[in-house]
Design a binder for these strands. Structure first.
Length: 680
RNA sequence: GCUGCUGUAGCUCAGUGGUAGAGCACUUCAUUGGUAAUGAAGAGGUCAUGGGUUCAAGUCCCAUCAGUAGCUCCA
């Protein structure tokens, strides 16, 4: 008599001893098919493991659970590390080898660095290890013994981790497979053969414990799946994702250009991209006016004194372009034999004045606020500007439109009273909501950044912080969408609400932001006269619904996969003539559409219609208007829609009305996921 | 900034130390067609830049610049 207890508490009884597989079969055919291994007392056992006894606590692990995939991948990481230790000569220090969303990695410090040339050898060795099918054996040791084991293995990272990271653990577990033994919490798959298909991906640098001041390790990325088909499918998906990369589409569609001679991270907006940017700017401007914002313009540079007052210089000097010194001063300094280092020191000390390319817009806006006496009746004052700022980002961080050195924020600064703060924050959130809704963008996350209760870097009255954090929380709630609250994520000057989206490769980017600031009003000594006839300090809100035009458009290119909605599309429609015989009519149609305010071009080449349609498809045109002799005779156009395909002939006026309505309503229509237009 | 990889025609990419290649795009000519590629010809190159090794370098080595994946950073 054998019985097992399943995770739901139910007991299943058997006449005699049974295998895990038989238990699975007794529950259902589907389960038996999906079963990978069993787990008894949290210890994995293979499917042919024989169960005896009563009320044996059994869990059947299947491949449709992410947990199983993670366990398998982690086991694969052990196999990979073992293979690396066999292949590479010299000492090898193991660090961590966790799983990621799409695979796993292992960090090593090697005497001989890894290169991609090692991949085939490592993969072959891994295949050999898997073929041997040695189990992962669990050993539990008291901490002194554990430290000794790691020390004997000359694994200093592990020793450090036990002593520091795992200081509270009485006992520690190891997993051993053949000659390879590794400190590891587990669990592991019962049989390495469960690892169906794996592939090494790339090598990258990583710092021990993520600390730049510590040893740099080599991180070997790989992925694994239960079957080769799943691995192939995954790789195919990754390739597909790369096709919607904004850097690829930006080039293909001619939206922007980044030129080596201009400089890293400095974007040149070509006509089509500039059009999208302008259109988005007009869109947000319309809503800013409705919400009582005032537009301002400020210069791209400002005196160092301004940024010393704001605290941005020299504190953030490393991430700014160096200051500009005027010609006369420069000549004088040169005469004195002043070196660059001295110049820098003297600018920091305030002995030499210079100009800074603005790293943010707030100081300029503050000076506009402060240019006249303000009454509480003037507040809230909302100053908006599409302000271009320049930051010296690390070279390794720059890429595409998402991280650049010169970018334009859809910036605004709100000067408010404490009583107005909560409502104004809600107003800011409303704008962000309008933006995301217009884009049909639902896949974003919201983060409320609060101060670290134990931190001491924060400026301002803790009571005000409490109020501001509460106001941020309440504003975030108006989104009707879950959000996270993260302690220690606030800026030193105030709490904030951030909006984060993912790019085509799964990387996270902050777009919109709303930040409360108690610091700058203080530093600039801002005030307003209250109803009590006394001076009071206003609070500032920094906010940018897009974040930056560059990053936002980069993310939107990927969001729409280049197929922008009609109101944003630089080229809304193209007239295609069936043959040159229809060119006159085609040009007439084109003119009428342009007169109706639509952005239309014509393709009058002596190509076949099929070729013109193909080119139009590759350019991701929302509409193609095919005109031939029949249309010329009837005053029609044959409309080909990006989403629905051939719509047939319709009177020109009807087509224009359709387009105008779609533009007016800012309709977002997505082509099918597979990229077909429904007619092919 | 750090680790790995990459840099060849406008674009996407081949290229074994021995004469610089393809497809697409472009130009010209022919073709006049109804929903994803008409045909032919032509033009297009300081092989990222600078050094080095070699009888000989796109190819091997070093440096620099740029791109890229990741790490670190992001007021």
């Amino acid at each position: 008599m054998t019985s097992v207890q399943l995770p739901d508490g139910s007991i299943k009884e058997f006449e005699s001893s049974v295998t895990v597989k038989e238990v699975a079969q007794s529950i259902g055919r589907g389960l038996a098919k999906a079963a990978l291994w069993g787990e008894i007392d949290l210890q994995p056992v293979p499917l042919d493991h024989v169960i005896e006894g009563t009320k044996v606590p059994l869990k059947i692990v299947t491949n449709n659970k992410n947990a199983a995939l993670e366990i398998m991948r982690h086991s694969c990481a052990h196999v990979m590390a073992r293979a690396v230790m066999r292949i590479k000569k010299g000492s090898i220090q193991l660090a961590f080898g966790p799983t990621t969303d799409n695979g796993f990695y292992y960090d090593f410090m090697l005497e001989q660095p890894l290169t991609e040339d090692d991949f085939p050898k490592i993969e072959a060795e891994m295949a050999k290890i898997i073929e041997l099918d040695e189990p992962f054996e669990r050993l539990v040791e008291p901490r002194e013994k554990a430290v000794q084991i790691c020390a004997d293995l000359k694994q200093e990272f592990k020793v450090e981790h036990i002593n520091e990271g795992l200081a509270d653990d009485e006992t520690l577990s190891f997993y051993q497979q053949g000659e390879f033994i590794d400190l590891c919490r587990g669990p592991h798959v019962p049989s390495p053969k469960t690892i169906g298909a794996f592939k090494l991906l790339t090598i990258a640098g990583a710092y021990w414990k993520g600390d730049q001041s510590r040893q740099q390790l080599q991180r070997l990325y790989a992925t694994a799946f239960f079957t080769q088909e799943e691995l192939d499918k995954h790789q195919e998906n990754q390739e597909e994702a790369k096709k919607r990369d904004h850097r690829v589409l930006g080039k293909k569609l001619g939206l922007f250009h980044i030129d080596e001679m201009v400089g890293q991270g400095l974007v040149l907006w070509t006509p089509k991209g500039a059009f999208i940017r302008q259109q988005l700017q007009d869109f947000i401007l319309f809503h800013l006016r409705k919400q009582g914002y005032d537009q301002v313009f400020t210069p791209h540079i400002g005196k160092l004194d301004l940024y010393k007052t704001s605290g941005h210089f020299p504190y953030y000097e490393d991430s700014q372009y160096p200051a500009i010194v005027d010609r006369d001063t420069m000549a004088k300094l040169a005469e004195e034999g002043c070196t660059c280092g001295e110049l820098s020191n003297r600018m920091s000390a305030g002995e030499v004045e210079g100009y800074l390319l603005k790293p943010m817009n707030c100081p300029h806006h503050i000076k506009i606020y402060d240019s006249q006496q303000r009454s509480y009746r003037d507040l809230p004052l909302r100053l908006a500007e599409f302000g271009t700022v320049y930051r010296w980002e690390q070279s390794g961080e720059i890429g595409g439109l998402t991280r650049v050195r010169g970018f334009t924020q859809d910036d605004a600064h709100l000067f408010v009273t404490q009583e107005q703060l909560a409502d104004e924050l809600i107003g800011c959130i409303k704008l962000v909501k309008i933006v995301f809704a217009a884009m049909g963008m639902e896949d974003y996350s919201v983060r409320v950044g609060k101060r670290d209760p134990n931190g001491d870097k924060y400026v301002g009255d803790p009571a005000n912080w409490d109020l501001a954090e509460q106001a941020c929380r309440e504003a975030a709630e108006t989104l009707g969408k879950p959000f996270t609250e993260e302690e220690g994520e606030a800026a030193f000057y105030g709490p904030k609400i951030d909006f984060v989206v993912k790019d085509c490769l799964g990387r996270k980017w902050q777009l919109g932001t709303v930040q409360v600031d108690y610091n700058l009003p203080e530093r600039f000594g801002l005030s307003y006269i209250g109803a009590d006839n006394a001076a009071h300090r206003p609070i500032m809100i920094h906010r940018a619904p897009f974040g930056s035009m560059e990053r936002f458009i980069g993310v939107m290119i990927e969001h729409f996969a280049g197929s922008f909605p009609l109101w944003l599309a630089p080229e809304q429609a193209r007239v295609l003539t069936v043959s040159e015989k229809s060119e006159d009519y085609g040009r007439k149609v084109e003119q009428q559409l342009i007169s109706a305010g639509l952005r239309v071009t014509g393709d009058y080449r002596s190509e076949k219609l099929g070729a013109k349609i193909r080119d139009g498809r590759l350019d991701l045109l929302p509409y193609m208007l095919i005109v031939g002799p029949r249309d010329a005779e009837n005053g029609t156009v044959s409309v080909r829609d990006r989403v629905e395909g051939d719509l047939g002939a319709m009177p020109l006026a009807q087509a224009i009305a359709r387009f105008q309505q779609e533009v007016e309503q800012k309709t977002v229509r997505r082509p099918d996921e597979d990229g077909s237009d429904g007619t092919d």
